[in-house]
C-alpha cells in the first residue's frame, strides 16, 4: 500500500468524520452520506474541505448529484474519487 493512498484515505475519513460529528473509527467505507447524517450543506462543506486539503478542484453540481463525475454514493466512493483527482493533478 502506497503511503499517499493511505494518507488520502485517512484524511478524507477525518474530513467526513468531522462533518458528521463522529469519531474516525465510526466512519466505515460502505456508509452513505445519509447514514452519516450529512445533508446538502454538509456535503458542499466537505467538498470544500477536500479541495483545500488536497489542493484539487472537485467537479460537483448540487443540482444533479447523480450525474456528477465525482461519486458520492459512499465513503469508499468518495475516497476513490479523491484518489483519482489527486493522481490527475500531479
Amino acid at each position: 500500500m502506497l503511503t499517499t493512498e493511505l494518507t488520502i484515505r485517512v484524511r478524507v475519513i477525518a474530513i467526513i468524520a468531522e462533518q458528521a460529528v463522529l469519531d474516525i473509527s465510526e466512519v466505515r467505507p460502505e456508509m452513505s452520506l445519509e447514514e452519516l447524517g450529512i445533508d446538502s450543506l454538509g456535503l458542499v462543506e466537505s467538498i470544500f474541505a477536500i479541495e483545500e486539503a488536497f489542493d484539487i478542484s472537485v467537479p460537483f453540481n448540487a443540482n444533479e448529484p447523480d450525474k456528477n463525475e465525482f461519486d458520492i454514493s459512499s465513503v469508499a466512493a468518495i475516497i476513490g474519487a479523491v484518489e483519482g483527482l489527486v493522481a490527475r493533478s500531479k
Binding site: V44, I47, F48, F60, N61, A62, N63, E64
Partner: peptide, 20 residues
C-alpha cells in the same frame, strides 16, 4: 460558486435536465 447551485451553461427552470 461555493454553494454549487449555479449552472455553467443555461437556466432551464422546470426542465428535467435543469442544472442550476
Amino acid at each position: 460558486e461555493g454553494l454549487r447551485v449555479m449552472s455553467k451553461d443555461a437556466c432551464r427552470p422546470f426542465s428535467a435536465n435543469r442544472n442550476g
